[in-house]
Write a protein that binds this DNA or RNA. Structure first.
Lengths: 223, 223
DNA sequence: AATAACAAACAAGCTTGCCGGTTTTTGCTG
DNA sequence: CAGCAAAAACCGGCAAGCTTGTTTGTTATT
């Protein structure tokens, strides 16, 4: 992995999940926590936030509920960790996708959109989306979600731009492209079961064209 | 209201909510049902689907829970009516907005997007969005939501195009423009608390330019 | 008198947080 | 290096609070 990707991921990395040079018990603990987080992610994406219970997470993680509450004393503690974990995973997938494209002209054509689309189709982003949506109407969740989400969003934006040399000197344009693509793709994710797949594909292709034109500066028509 | 709007709304109109030429008891019943539906909408948009309880709806409607269950025997019955009601209200706002623009050149500039944006900012659409999202992970809700949503979405698309003469002979283009705008704006609605308002506005303006270019056929660049 | 609208109370099922108890690992000490 | 106490990981059960659907009862309309 290149230096930039490492730095970005280091800034986004969740705490308490690195077991380097620790004893066996510590490693076991980290292993269990990751199992819990994975279970929470799967629970969120398949059952939604409202139906995600501590009982279900514990079952999917393969441990007792009492054991889980030892690692995460309250549901809020667990959710807070899930937020960091999902954001980290999303950008890991994104940077992996970018890195896989050696061609400097990678952002032309649909490349950028496909990578974004892939990073938004992960189980982790599905879980993040459930939390983001639930936070809009759940004050208790919003209290722990919004500060983290805003900070992580800003960090990811400021750092991932480094992997796109062609955007480096146009932060505003990059932010617009990112927000625009993320918003449209998130909208597609919400309507995935309502709209025909063919329609969704057309929207994605059109979005790709739009972003490509935006990058080439061809989209400032007469207002 | 013009003939086209009337016809579209007639196709989308919910059942059991017209008290024309009925007795007093019937009118009272419809009045109460509407109060319940409004309460459900407010409950959904402020507390989300997961925390929307029959108790809370009844309180917000100003009646007892027992009285509410007389009109809607089960929660599913109520939600089914809420779906029809919210879709109807959304397109009513949309068509009102279109009708208010006498200028034939109304779809130029930002007009179309602003109307869509307004129709998506209503409390009713917020409630609809909550249901759409919850249906993705709640099989019981999906069973009553998806068939209705798909049918209503198709109906609305096929009918609202009549109000845009310039689109009449390009259903595919109109469908793309609608889906594209709806997806992007829905994505904005989800991230409204995470992204700065300024960023959201930039995205909306850019979306307006994109749709306008799409309509003028200026957006088929080299792939 | 029959029906509709409305109200209140009840039982069953979940979910959360907390508590006591058990097993395994760690680290200190003689 | 053997032994032992402390700590960590883990398990099962409990009470309190909600939510849903049902049931029984009261008032008003047809």
């Amino acid at each position: 992995m290149d230096d930039i990707s490492i730095r970005v991921l280091a800034l986004l990395a969740p705490e308490g999940l690195d077991a380097e040079g620790q004893g066996w018990q510590q490693r076991k603990s980290v292993q269990t926590r990751i199992a819990i987080l994975e279970a929470a992610v799967n629970c969120l994406r398949t059952h939604g936030y409202g139906r995600t219970t501590t009982q279900l997470i514990a079952e999917m993680a393969g441990i007792s509920r009492g054991a889980m509450l030892h690692h995460y004393a309250t549901k809020q503690d667990l959710i807070a960790s899930v937020i960091d974990y999902t954001v980290y995973k999303r950008w890991e997938v994104f940077l992996d996708g970018v890195r896989a494209l050696k061609d400097p002209a990678r952002i032309y054509k649909m490349a950028g959109i496909e990578i974004s689309w892939n990073s938004l189709q992960t189980p982790e982003y599905a879980a993040y989306l459930e939390l983001a949506i639930a936070a809009r109407t759940d004050p208790a969740l919003a209290e722990i979600f919004l500060p983290r989400a805003r900070r992580l969003d800003q960090t990811a934006l400021a750092e991932t731009i480094r992997t796109f040399p062609e955007w480096t000197h146009d932060l505003e344009g990059y932010a617009l492209a990112m927000d625009y693509a993320t918003a449209t793709l998130a909208g597609l994710l919400i309507n995935r079961d309502i709209w025909p797949e063919s329609s969704q594909q057309v929207v994605r292709e059109f979005l790709g064209k739009t972003i490509a034109m935006l990058r080439r500066g061809e989209l400032n028509p007469p207002t």
